[in-house]
């Protein structure tokens, strides 16, 4: 009884003490190091071109997450010119930023430069299209899985139909074409009743995609599915199907960064039956998180090599209208 009274008294006494003493926190051991590690660091961004919805989304993510913490972001825009991109990367290596975010136009062109950059102490984070050369981090789509997802949907849609499908690739040596193809092949290997009647490259251009699809549809009017490799290009693919009056019969699958006009609107209009979306804002955030982690941990190039694969969301008529499936570019 006496004891409990004493405890009570102590409690009252404690409460009576000025609030200041209670609020005085203990020193947080992380933040000083974190801000010091990030402040004044330089991150260079080398996309295929800034005029892509993807690059705009990624840069927005980098800026909103990193700039408030004192990280300087510089952009080199090769505007779809691979030589200009290689030159920009060479130049960046000489300028020695702390991190370079690289969007590879194909799996080989930047490979040597990536190796050289990391040898010079620059962290290389590859975004969405990886080079054959591994670097500290890759943030982006698992293209093999992407191909498999699309192929599974098309195989499903082709059940009970002709089983004839066409494939419209981008640049053949781009990661997004080469690896997607291997994903498709793995699914098709299990479905011998599906026959690929055409497998052509449209070099990411919508007019070429349309020409190829038109010709293929004329030769195979009983086609049941098409797998396209990028929604911006497959506007042409979809236009050809629409013009042939085969929208109901031909299942058009594509993929992209989920920008409203390129993805959800096109699925809603019935142009695409499926758009497998990798959320670009999420990728931008992942990219920024990766850089924050690498810089604050003081990782040196070559020490580690990791991947952060983006979640793939199949967008169909069922969910194209849902909140948060697509994102809208700020003008």
């Amino acid at each position: 009884m006496r004891n409990s009274l004493r405890i009570l008294a102590m409690g009252v006494a404690l409460l009576a003490l000025p609030g200041v003493t209670v609020a005085k926190g203990i020193k947080e051991p992380l933040r000083d190091g974190y801000y010091q590690a990030l402040k004044g660091k330089k991150v260079a961004f080398l996309p295929g071109a800034m005029a892509m919805d993807l690059a705009i989304g990624w840069l927005a993510g980098l800026k909103s997450e990193l700039e408030p913490q004192g990280v300087e972001i510089v952009v080199r825009d090769p505007n779809f010119n691979i030589q200009a991109g290689a030159q920009a990367l060479t130049q960046l290596i000489a300028e020695k930023p702390d991190v370079i975010v690289v969007h590879n136009p194909d799996v080989t062109t930047y490979a040597k430069l990536i190796k050289q950059a990391e040898a010079n102490g620059i962290l290389i984070v590859q975004i969405n299209m990886a080079s054959l050369q591994k670097s500290t981090a890759y943030v982006g789509v698992d293209w093999v899985e992407m191909g498999a997802v699309q192929a599974r949907h098309v195989v499903e849609a082709c059940k009970g139909k002709s089983g004839k499908i066409a494939i419209v690739q981008g640049d053949l040596t781009a990661a997004a074409s080469a690896y997607t193809m291997s994903g498709i092949e793995s699914v098709l290997a299990e479905n011998p009743d599906i026959k690929v009647v055409s497998n052509q490259s449209a070099s990411w251009q919508s007019d070429k995609a349309k020409s190829i699809t038109q010709t293929v549809l004329k030769q195979n009017p009983d086609l049941c599915g098409i797998i396209g490799f990028w929604d911006n290009m497959d506007r042409g693919t979809a236009a050809a199907v629409d013009e042939a009056g085969l929208s109901d019969q031909v299942y058009v699958a594509t993929s992209g960064g989920g920008e409203t006009k390129a993805a959800c609107d096109m699925v809603k209009s019935g142009a695409y039956d499926l758009n497998v979306v990798y959320s670009v804002p999420n990728q931008g955030a992942n990219l920024a998180s990766t850089i924050k982690y690498l810089l604050s941990a003081g990782v040196k190039p070559g020490e580690i090599s990791g991947q952060m694969y983006t979640t793939l969301t199949p967008v169909t008529a069922a969910n194209a209208g849902d909140e948060g499936i697509c994102w809208t570019m700020k003008q």
């Binding site: 071109a49 995609a209 911006n232």
Partner: peptide
């Protein structure tokens, strides 16, 4: 004609 045909105009075509 091209833009009407594919439903958009890609200025990237200049680089092709």
């Amino acid at each position: 004609v091209m833009a009407a045909s594919v439903g958009s105009m890609s200025t990237r075509i200049y680089n092709s």
